[in-house]
Amino acid sequence: MMQTLGMAFWKTSLIEAADELAQTSLGYEPIGVKEATFPLPRDLPGSYVALVGGEYSYEFGFAARWEHCEGLVKRMLFMEADEEVSQDFIADAMNELANMIGGGVKRRMVEFDSTLKLGLPVFFNGTVHPTALQERTCSVVSFGDYPVHLIALRHKSPV
């Protein structure tokens, strides 16, 4: 079954999946949500995951300042604030956080589009510049004291 899912549904699924992650693996209160606009801040590290479907492809980013990424990772692993972690480890753990959100998003969307396949996360430090063909939206959500950008993109899948 495949239905065209609008940006609103895509964005809501993403926020709900992020909220689920915040309240389970991270033990936070429900996330607060604020709208954000493009262009996004420069040099914003984060993990990006694709959901590829028959008609549309979706990508989302889970991005925050380095020190906030580190804080989220330590929170997830019950680590002390002064414990040393490498950037590679932070990237690995941020990918896992994004992967968990991706699973939650797919679970919510696959009922309407069973063609969706979840890609593997990739972590990079930079700025997303959507093209004119890509619909985009961004929210800043609060994981405890850490603001996180949830970036949602959608575009037609290749024929």
Partner: peptide, 11 residues
Amino acid sequence: DSKAMRMIVMR
């Protein structure tokens, strides 16, 4: 394949 996830599961 994620060391971080293995740590999370153990914790």
